[in-house]
Nucleic acid binder design. Structure first.
Length: 291
DNA sequence: TGTCAGGTCCTCA
DNA sequence: TGAGGACCTGAC
């Protein structure tokens, strides 16, 4: 199988990237090993020492697609230094999730994924997305016996009925997705919408006008779909985290946003990922310990 | 077996 | 303008 080896100059922990809630189409296959699909490709990622091994790709595809997708060109060390300044808790969270990167994912896929994510849990979100792609997407290819499909286009989704989507088991979100697809078409399509939002000062403010998108989902799409690193999504885990980290009342969303803007600034989204991953992992581990 | 999940929508003051 | 209930489904 063709593959490409990238020397990352440090040992990357893939869990930090793929188990922090920003993506739903990657599966852990072993220690520091994931298989997944993005941007119409399927690959396996493995880490051995300082080498990131990407299977089912070649040098050209790595440079054209994966280097950017994995955000390998961005200087996270600089961000860590800025965020760590006078913040011991953040320093601890950064140490814990040191390999975190904000992936450069497909905008439309992020819209769909985070609408599905609302009031939902990660195993079911992943299942819903997989069934949605199988039902309405186009085949991408097969990898080790498993077939992969693309996210359905707005055009395809807009023509679907709730009956068509019943096997996907989206719950009440099926109606949101169909309406959202129609709204995106009315905006001139995905590319036109993405271009418009990319130029917007506050994309989240525009995104909440769409069906199924509230403040939290809008901030996730802004961060993960538009790569606007200042975006600071606040969900239930972040409320708890901001309480433990900085003593915020869990209902004080505005206070948290103001704090993020002032202290994390242009890197709010990366700070959010460090805090989120630290809290989620420690929370989960504590729960598992109790069992 | 019941709770709750990385929220949003809708209704009603 | 915002508070509060309803909402699908299935992990745990």
């Amino acid at each position: 199988m063709k593959s490409y080896i990238y020397n990352s100059k440090e040992k990357i922990e893939l869990d930090h990237i793929f188990d922090c809630g920003q993506c739903f189409r990657w599966d852990k296959k072993g220690e520091n090993e994931y298989v997944g699909t993005a941007l119409g490709k399927i690959v396996r990622l493995k880490v051995e020492d300082e080498n990131l091994i990407i299977e089912n790709t070649d040098e050209k595809e790595f440079k054209d697609i994966w280097f950017n997708y994995l955000d390998l060109g961005f200087d996270y060390e600089k961000v860590k230094a800025v965020l760590s300044n006078n913040d011991e808790k953040m320093k601890e969270a950064i140490k814990f999730g040191h390999s975190i990167k904000i992936l450069n994912q497909d905008f439309w896929e992020m819209m769909i994924s985070f609408v599905i994510s609302q009031n939902n849990n990660i195993p079911r979100i992943k299942g819903s997305i997989r069934r949605l792609t199988e039902a309405l997407g186009e085949p991408i290819g097969e990898f080790e016996g498993e077939k992969y499909y693309s996210m359905p286009t707005p055009e395809r989704l807009s023509k679907a009925t709730v009956e068509d989507l019943a096997p996907v088991r989206l719950g009440y979100r099926d109606k949101y997705l169909i309406r959202l697809a129609n709204e995106v078409i009315n905006e001139g399509g995905v590319d036109a919408l993405k271009d418009r939002l990319a130029k917007a000062k506050n994309p989240a403010k525009e995104l909440v006008k769409f069906t199924g998108i509230g403040p939290k989902v809008a901030n996730c799409i802004t961060l993960f779909g538009l790569h606007r690193l200042e975006s600071f999504p606040i969900d239930v885990w972040m409320r708890r985290a901001m309480n433990t980290f900085y003593g915020f009342n869990e209902d004080d969303l505005k206070g948290m946003q103001d704090y993020a803007k002032e202290h994390f600034g242009e890197f709010g989204g990366i700070a959010q990922q460090y805090i989120f991953y630290y809290t989620l992992r420690n929370g989960k581990d504590q729960n598992e310990d109790q069992k």
